[in-house]
């Protein structure tokens, strides 16, 4: 193929601003190499174990004077902590591409949103 003469393009009009999201990826990518060490993994597991122990402890009478609302709150907080620890460390999301994080968070947020609204419409809270 030969070179074709062409009239210069009006760049400002035609070239769209580069997409920030994709641009970031390559740069951010290096982070992926920071694999946590086995020691860190064990530490996370210990934290998870401790959180679970805390959770289970609420089952026994001693904490019930807190009242249901506080108990729910405490359990939810512990659950979310455990969830985040596993996702961030074991599933490596803390160190991985932002795209993956967005996909997963989108799934969680959508699920939380629609199902909480659904259950609220059913008025199951406080029942």
């Amino acid at each position: 193929m030969t070179q074709t003469p062409s009239v210069p393009t009006e760049a400002a009009e035609d070239v769209q601003p580069a997409d920030a999201e994709t641009e970031d990826v390559a740069a951010e990518h290096d982070a992926e190499h920071e694999h946590p060490s086995d020691r860190q993994y064990v530490k996370v597991a210990l934290i998870l174990g401790a959180l679970t122990a805390l959770e289970v402890a609420t089952y026994f009478e001693s904490v019930h004077h807190l009242g249901d609302a506080a108990l729910y709150a405490l359990l939810v907080v512990l659950m979310v902590l455990k969830f985040i620890y596993v996702v961030a460390w074991f599933m490596h999301l803390k160190f991985d591409s932002v795209i993956l994080r967005r996909i997963f968070v989108a799934g969680i947020v959508l699920a939380l949103g629609v199902y909480l609204v659904m259950l609220t419409a059913f008025r199951i809270w406080g029942a």
Binding site: T4, S6, V7, P8, T9, E10, D14, V15, Q16
Partner: peptide, 22 residues
């Protein structure tokens, strides 16, 4: 750019009018 293929066929002359470039 957007519409890459079209831009390879068409360009603008000095008056800004669309002209075929290939």
């Amino acid at each position: 750019r957007q519409d890459e293929f079209w831009h390879r066929k068409w360009g603008y002359d000095e008056n800004g009018k669309v002209v075929r470039i290939a």
